[in-house]
Write a protein that binds this DNA or RNA. Structure first.
Lengths: 142, 142
DNA sequence: ATTACTGCAAAGCCTTTGCAAGCCC
DNA sequence: GGGCTTGCAAAGGCTTTGCAGTAAT
């Protein structure tokens, strides 16, 4: 086990879960891949971890909001996106699956309006834009 | 087969596919459910349609951009969202998994800004808020 | 009349479960 | 040391496939 752990590993521990080598291996694989991998890719990246433990780790990470399964155009299985702390906004290129992150969303006014309208208490949000990145625009258009 | 068909059914026909009773049944089930259903729910809603045909219809609808599979918080299987107009916005109650839809997002200015900033051509977006619905707020807070 | 499409059922694949052993705390 | 967690393998469940019959055009 490594001497230092990522902030996400710390969140695991803070939530009362043990920092096992299996969980750390899956977490490091996610962070290494910048987080839009399928379970199959993750299984390949962690050959020393049992399949069941990979799935159990993904389930745990999902419940702790460390990752989020999402459908990125092509695949028939979910891809797991790392959720950075705070805002989670991406732009997805539907041609090459590139993910661009951005921070400014200016959604706080809308969030407050929705809280009032529906009587909800909102804690966070996810915003994804879909389109084509510069490379793919060039490659697929006149 | 019904005498009149929805605009989506027309898109099917325009794309060169036959308007079969199986496809219409699945499409009507999607429209009736406002489109947050899993394949399992869809299978229940179309007892007269063979399972394989339901899956084949969903695959076809996905390729035609009539629906979009998405992971909404809870389920381990995708939920199929009807894509009416490019906007897909929900509020998810993280306690009871209730889903509330809303239409106004005012994200067009942001979308245009991001297109300029990253050189992308954006076609659509997904916005999800996470929180607690009125019932669950009452139930879980002092 | 053509041929795309359906339905059934079996095959296929990914994911989950059960349980003894192992490791974190 | 206690008990959460792992790993293996088998079970499980959803999805896909093959093929002959059926229906849309």
């Amino acid at each position: 086990m490594a001497a230092t752990h990522s902030a996400r590993a710390q969140r695991l521990r803070d939530a009362g879960y043990r920092l096992t080598s299996a969980r750390l291996a899956v977490l490091e694989a996610l962070e290494r891949s910048q987080g839009h991998v399928t379970s199959a890719e993750l299984l390949q990246m962690t050959p020393d971890v049992g399949r069941a433990s990979v799935y159990r780790a993904l389930d745990l990470f999902t419940r702790l909001a460390i990752v989020r399964p999402a459908w990125l155009q092509d695949s028939s299985t979910p891809r797991y996106l790392l959720l950075p702390d705070g805002h989670h906004h991406h732009i997805l290129c539907t041609a090459c699956d590139r993910v661009i992150d951005f921070d400014d969303c200016h959604l706080e006014p809308l969030q407050r309006e929705l809280e009032t309208r529906y009587g909800m208490r909102l804690r966070g949000h996810l915003l994804e834009f879909y389109g084509r990145c510069p490379d793919c625009v060039d490659r697929t258009e006149g």
